[in-house]
Amino acid sequence: MKSSSPPSPPKLFSHLYIERGVLEHPQTQRIRAKFADSQVILIDHYKEVFNRPAQSFAAQSGSKKLILARKEGKFLHEGSQYSDGFGTEQFFYASSVMGCLYDCDYCYLQGLYPSANTVLFVNLEDAFEQLRPYLGKDTLVATSYDTDTMAIESLTHQTLRWLEFAVEHEHLHLEIRTKSANFKALKNTTPSPRVTLAWTLSPQEIINTYEHATPSIEKRLNAAEEAIAAGWNVRLCIDPVIYTENFDILYPKLIETIFATIDPNAIEHLTLGSFRMSQNHLRALKKLRRSDVAFYPYSVSDEMATYPEAIETYILETLMAKAHQYLPKERIRTWQRQL
């Protein structure tokens, strides 16, 4: 057999699987135009592609496909114990995308989903309708909870649609969490005091090892800086902290790097949290055998795996002390297991 140089993987979203029912949706048509070279495959329901048996999450990660579908059930889910609702009366996260463009080794999506492909629910207008009855009182919606919506904003425009919706509803607060450097997608939008852009930050060494396909720390910080300069509320998150042998060097240095770029007075909060995951998701992550993060001897209680208490406390105390050099304690939030 003749041998030649190994072929490159197909470009991102080389295949669009489209539910027949959303073929005429304007969002579908816009995406089709954007990916005019991609193969289009008509399907009846997204689950026949996304939930197929015998998929390989690892192999698909190098060649992700896009599935366009209609969400039939609830878009909104109540905030979970793994996240912070910032004391708002009601806290939801919106699930308008399944899967993520990025590929973090510690991501629970790998344990949650059978596929590395992305499902985009194009009928976001139904999420707004589902939310309306709650908007009589203060309500926080995390729009980027099961994914990184900003990473695909130029494709979906979903964040822009959320921002437009928020303008009309004075009790609606949005949190848009991202690792992306894509601030330019929001550049022409007027900042809202009820919207917080939250950047997840990690030391570059951790990004290189565990956060595949994500922008560098420098790019994330530059994007956060631009957002601050444009007048947005910005929160920074060092969460999840991955405990490694160099923790004592990497993470305090990260805090120094952050505040060498960003004015501490210009951010809403700094959030600190060590890695945590439900035991079920961790079991599924182990089956993939992709990363050491899944195999650390965590301590498990109430079905939640965390670093052993002594390490968790050490992580938070170390980072708290460092962050306190720049910020008052009330602007540092931490996630710690409730004992």
Binding site: P7, P10, H15, Q39, I41, Q55, S56, Q60
Partner: peptide, 15 residues
């Protein structure tokens, strides 16, 4: 019933 092989490689064939 519909079945979908995963095409995770580049090629020059018509799909």
């Amino acid at each position: 019933r519909h079945y979908y092989p995963d095409i995770l490689f580049t090629h020059s064939l018509r799909e």
